[in-house]
Design a protein around this nucleic acid. Structure first.
Length: 563
RNA sequence: GGGGGAUUGGUCUAACGGUAGGACGACUGACUCUGGAUCAGUUUGUGGAGGUUCAAAUCCUUCAUCCCCUGCCA
């Protein structure tokens, strides 16, 4: 079990839990849950919530449930249940045998509603939706009581039973809690508990035509599952009095030893991207990204496809603040987490993304040397591999400048550079296309005494370049992913306007890359550091058709490019 | 003249009346057969005003700003 930052300072939720344990609440148990609605894909913000709930339970020796909040058949689909389960599992949160659905409790919820009616705490209302809105009042004005508010218990019981039987059309009636139309908290102005929806539910099919509302269903689910700490996002703080109202009456109807309590925390979002379902959907529907799992998307599926590891995402979540305010985390922190992990673990290989042919005029034609190169300087255990070297090689176009810029450390006309793991070379001539003036080839010489690891290899030059032997080079496609948006905080860009900040270069596809032969058979899903370029992921889907495709997960930090 | 929540450097966070610290980023330098990594260092902060106190980021008052709430969504 990978832990997130176990030494992290306490957060306010831990403070609350510690107090609860000290007071013996719920017998000192800690039991959390992650309650997604199966109506979309999980994103990095959800990962934070999953992680928070799971690791809180874990660190207190408690339990963690996965519970789908499927009370609205119009929006929910099995497809999302499947993808969410896969994502939560991939993130490493283990619900063991505690997979639940709000719909598992529809019958109990119905019985409890009957109890509320009997107690005079709920009534069937015939108001239409627009009427109900009008009766509700406004933020600054109290509401008015529905004319149906004081129906007799028997009439309510009868009407509610007939609602269940399907005698009334959608929208014609609701079951409402009888609380307080004067409350300054709109959630307490006789909130709807049930609405009529003659719709097919992904799990219960056509069994029901009345469906409970979130505010009613959620606390019941928590209560029935013996949840102790029901964590949710900030916007539900106003709903807490209603949550408590339901729990309190559940306690009377179905006495149990435990009582769940709701605590709100701030959502986590990321800079240079968007998080709202609506905006993510627009990106897909308008074709700005290929799909929900496009490697530029902040969805779990997208991050996975990009090449992020669950452990890096967990580490990131552990570094995020748990606070009573929504936060926008710096993308750089997420990138730091994957770099840190991959720096330690990823094998290094040489890949030339934008090749420039280079001929070593004094290197014997037809000769091939297999040079031993270290796999990872950070990991002595990682060993070495053999890389072929020959008269014709490729180097990176940007590693040569005929007229060097200030502080340029690599190859220049008449200058020297070391080829990583091989020899020091000197550029003698530049061959150009006579028409375009474009550099097509470099004619160079090598210093035979400078061979890496050789006795006389100690000579220093100011730069080192990566390279690939031309006759041995393997063709690959490389997809350079970058920030989806060029502006860090899209929050204040007007609605609908955020698209103007799309980064036109969020994806650059290079299809003429040359990689060293050692990764010709790269295992799909494996990760490498392309020397001096970044960390890359052998794309599992694109690999399928026999073509090598690598996704750039994240670039290396590059102090030269920055300057 | 509604209710709820929040405010510590560029970002996130610690402090629970007693030296404002950390992470990421940025910048310097060292080192380097990756301009990576590593190491050393630097920079930037308690929203404002009052008050309580020997002592306030922390407690009180007040102002300001930001977020959420008028679905038969969650």
């Amino acid at each position: 079990m990978t832990s997130i930052n176990p030494d992290a300072a306490n957060n306010f939720i831990k403070d609350i839990i510690n107090d609860d344990i000290a007071q013996g609440k719920n017998g000192g148990r800690v039991h959390t849950r992650f309650p997604p609605e199966p109506n979309g894909w999980l994103h990095i913000g959800h990962a934070f919530a999953v992680n928070l709930n799971y690791h809180l339970a874990l660190s207190y020796g408690g339990k963690f449930n996965l519970r789908f909040d499927d009370t609205n058949p119009l929006k929910e689909e099995q497809e999302f249940v499947d993808s969410i389960m896969a994502d939560v599992k991939w993130l490493g949160a283990d619900w063991e045998d505690r997979l639940f659905f709000a719909s598992d409790y529809f019958e109990q919820k119905y019985q409890f509603a009957v109890y509320l009616i009997e107690q005079g705490l709920a009534y069937v209302d015939d108001l239409t939706a627009p009427e109900m809105r009008e009766y509700r009042g406004t933020l600054t004005e109290p509401g008015r009581e529905s004319p149906y508010r004081n129906r007799a218990v028997q009439e309510n019981l009868d009407l509610f039973a007939r609602m269940r039987r399907g005698e009334f059309p959608d929208g014609s009636r609701t079951l409402r809690a009888k609380i307080d139309m004067q409350s300054p908290n709109l959630n307490m102005r006789d909130p709807a508990l049930y609405r009529i929806r003659h719709a097919h539910h992904h799990r219960t099919g056509g069994t029901w035509c009345i469906y409970p509302m979130y505010d009613y269903a959620h606390p019941i689910g928590d209560y029935l599952e013996n949840i102790t700490h029901s964590l949710c996002s900030l916007e539900y703080a106003d709903h807490r009095p209603l949550y408590d109202w339901v729990v309190e009456h559940m306690g009377h109807a179905f006495p149990a030893s435990g009582r769940p309590q709701q605590t709100e925390f701030g959502r986590v979002s990321l800079s240079y991207t968007v998080m709202s379902k609506r905006k993510l959907r627009r990106l897909v529907e308008e074709g700005h990204v290929a799909s929900w799992d496009d490697p530029r998307m902040p969805t779990i599926a997208g991050l996975r496809r990009r090449g992020y590891t669950p452990s890096a995402i967990r580490a990131f979540c552990g570094l995020c603040g748990v606070a009573r305010k929504n936060v926008v985390m710096d993308l750089a922190l997420l990138e730091h987490c994957i770099r840190e992990e991959l720096n330690a673990k990823a094998p290094r290989v040489m890949a030339v993304l934008r090749p420039l042919k280079l001929v070593l005029e004094n290197y014997p034609e037809g000769q091939v040397e297999w040079l031993e190169v270290g796999n990872n300087p950070e990991d002595p255990q990682s060993g070495t591999r053999l890389v072929p070297f020959s008269r014709e090689i490729y180097i990176e176009q940007e590693d040569f400048m005929e007229v060097p810029a200030k502080k340029f450390h690599r190859l220049t006309l008449g200058g020297e550079v070391r080829l990583k793991g091989a020899y020091i070379i000197r550029c003698e001539r530049v061959v150009k296309d006579p028409d375009t003036g474009e550099i097509t080839e470099l004619r160079c010489t090598y210093d035979p005494l400078s061979k890496s690891g050789g006795e006389q290899s100690g000579r220093k030059v100011k730069g080192t370049s990566h390279w690939v032997s031309a006759p041995h080079a393997v063709e690959a496609e490389v997809r350079l992913y970058d920030n989806l948006f060029s502006q860090a905080d899209l929050g204040d860009a007007g609605e609908g306007d955020f698209m103007i900040h799309l980064n036109p270069s969020s994806l650059v596809v290079l299809d003429d890359c040359k990689v060293e032969p050692s990764i010709a058979a790269a295992v799909p899903g494996s990760r490498y550091q392309f020397l001096r370029q970044g960390y890359f992921y052998a794309d599992p889907e694109c690999q399928a058709n026999g073509r090598l495709v690598f996704n750039r997960i994240v670039g290396l930090k590059d102090t030269w490019a920055r300057g």
